[in-house]
C-alpha cells in the first residue's frame, strides 16, 4: 500500500508493507505517483540501483534519491520496483520507460527526497512503514 500525505510546501510519500523491502518498493511507487500516474508507465526497461547507508532511514533516502537521479539523467519514469536489503546495503531494480509527453501526463518534477518526516518503522502488527517528504 502507498499514499501521499500533506505537507505545507511539498508532498509526503509513504509505503506500507509486510516486509521492509516491499515498504521501500511501495514508497518508490508513491514517488512515481508524485510525478505522474504510474499506471501509464510501461515497465519496459530495468535500471539497477545499489546503495549503502549509515542507518535504515538514510538508506530509504538514498534509494529514493538514486531513483530521482536515474529518472533525471535517463529522462525515464518508473512503475515497478524490486528491492533486496541485506544489513544496510540495498540492491534494487526500477522498471520503466522513457518519458513520452503524449502518453505521460506529468504533474511536477521531484528535486530530492528530503530527511523531513523521514521514518522507517515496524508497528506492533509487524507492518513496515517507510516515508519522507520530497521537495518538488
Amino acid at each position: 500500500m502507498w499514499e501521499h500525505f500533506s505537507h505545507p510546501a511539498d508532498i509526503g510519500i509513504r509505503g506500507v508493507a509486510d516486509t521492509l523491502e516491499d515498504a521501500f518498493a511501495q514508497t518508490a511507487y508513491a514517488l512515481s505517483a508524485v510525478i505522474c500516474d504510474p499506471q501509464t508507465v510501461e515497465p519496459l526497461e530495468a535500471v539497477e540501483i545499489r546503495c549503502e547507508s549509515l542507518d535504515v532511514e538514510l538508506l530509504l533516502a538514498d534509494w529514493l534519491n538514486s531513483l530521482i537521479y536515474e529518472m533525471d539523467v535517463r529522462k525515464m519514469l518508473f512503475s515497478r520496483f524490486d528491492v533486496s536489503i541485506t544489513g544496510l546495503q540495498l540492491t534494487g531494480e526500477a522498471w520503466g520507460e522513457r518519458i513520452d509527453p503524449n502518453r505521460h501526463k506529468i504533474t511536477v518534477g521531484v528535486k530530492a527526497a528530503t530527511y523531513m518526516e523521514l521514518k522507517v518503522a515496524r508497528n506492533e502488527k509487524g507492518l513496515w512503514t517507510a516515508q519522507c517528504v520530497v521537495d518538488v
Binding site: H4, F5, S6, H7, P8, A9, D10, I11, V108, V136
Partner: peptide
C-alpha cells in the same frame, strides 16, 4: 509563500 499543501 504557500499556505496550502499540493495534495490539498
Amino acid at each position: 509563500g504557500r499556505q496550502m499543501s499540493r495534495t490539498a
